[in-house]
Design a protein around this nucleic acid. Structure first.
Lengths: 219, 219
DNA sequence: TACCGCTTGTGCACCGGCGCACAAGCGCAT
DNA sequence: ATGCGCTTGTGCGCCGGTGCACAAGCGGTA
């Protein structure tokens, strides 16, 4: 049960999952590591090794059971239950994220929106009324919110992160272009749009022979 | 001149840059690797080694010249000139990205917006009129666009990527949750919002003692 | 001029990840 | 029942990245 899954593998599991969902919708029952590797854009050996961390469920000479594998990956990622999310910061990005359907459809329903500006509080976005950040703790508690998304300007990000942690959120996804400090027990991931472009700039300028150095090197 | 900067270092340069801009605005002239490391949330030795790839510009016993370092990093990332960007896909995410000021302010002005839907074409977002995707090649040519941002649904992403490459875009940033294939000469980076949440799900479920396994492990 | 404190630059050992390549093993056909 | 083809599971060598720890070197002071 207490399997230790390497970070690199964890980062790929959602990709496999996506590919498997697609496969399942075509009616496929079984899939080989080579076929899955092709869909996910990675090496076949890597697929096999990654899946072996979930426990071994492949059948030699045949492949993997698509549905079973989907359940295994879902379990590993904790997707068996819905994980409520709050978005902090209702600027352009926050509003777009609120409208973005990809979260809810993948088990991360957005149940609350929060902003610091009185002008925004009370406004309704995508069916949810924006609350004031001062009420964050109560909101997190009420909806049993596990994940906080930070979509504020950089200056506010650390204070928001602190507030989210204090309110009991268990992990954080930040879009703010700043360094954040959170307790070790709170997983934190950062996505910085401008940084991504700057990285591209380097490789583009070099007429790069290689990929842009992403976490996953897949094409 | 033909310095080979490791991928991991390139990914950190924008972070350093951000920290240095902040520092410069406080009037600081010099900065030590330790101070910069603190701001950027990384190890001091790593900072020194990273900067050494730019050529050596630190002074022992003193530190680095903030302005000079900023220029060095800017040069390495190709930020000396503006890099025009086109956004493809004017759904929620595309519109948010169009409004997001962080791109233009960092040397990546958004000069064109494109969509496949006739309903959207002609609409004005953030001062730019949405064009039809069929005109992509002409638009890229006219504005000398170097970077394409894909903000379409997964199904359309590969076709858009192909069109961007054919139109002469030199690098691509994709937000579509799908695997994309592009020529080796075109740097590609991917950001998948739902994937990020799923990864968090794993660590959260494990009451992780570690960070979320980001590309950069900094706090 | 000589010394001292501070900071850079880097050699080195370690670690995680990658992917080749092969043995182990399943199922089907004969 | 036997054998064959196909696919998994993994050992192993390799490579990039990391960070400690130390020598090299600058500037200010006496």
């Amino acid at each position: 049960m207490a399997r230790e899954i390497p970070d690199a593998t964890v980062a790929r599991l959602p990709i496999y999952r996506r590919s498997l969902v697609e496969l399942a919708s075509t009616g496929a029952e079984m899939v080989s590591s080579a076929a899955l590797a092709d869909l996910a854009g990675v090496n076949a050996a890597k697929v096999r090794k990654d899946l072996s961390y979930l426990g071994t469920y492949g059948v030699r000479g045949v492949g993997y059971d698509v549905k079973f594998l989907l359940r295994q990956i879902g379990d590993a990622l904790g997707l068996d239950i819905e994980t409520p999310v709050v978005i902090v910061g209702m600027g352009n990005l926050g509003q777009a994220l609120a409208h973005y359907g990809g979260f809810s459809s993948r088990g991360f329903p957005i149940v609350a929106l929060v902003d610091a500006s009185d002008a925004k509080v009370g406004e309704v976005v995508d069916g949810i009324t924006i609350s004031h950040i001062d009420d964050l703790a109560a909101i997190v508690d009420e909806h049993a919110i596990a994940v906080g998304i930070i979509a504020t300007p950089a200056e506010a990000a650390q204070a928001v992160a602190d507030a989210l942690v204090a309110a009991g959120v268990r992990s954080i996804l930040s879009f703010a272009p700043s360094v954040l400090h959170v307790p070790e027990t709170v997983p934190l991931r950062k996505v910085d749009l401008a940084t991504e472009l700057q990285i591209l700039g380097y490789y583009q300028q070099r007429e790069s022979p290689a990929e842009g150095g992403n976490t996953d090197k897949s094409a």
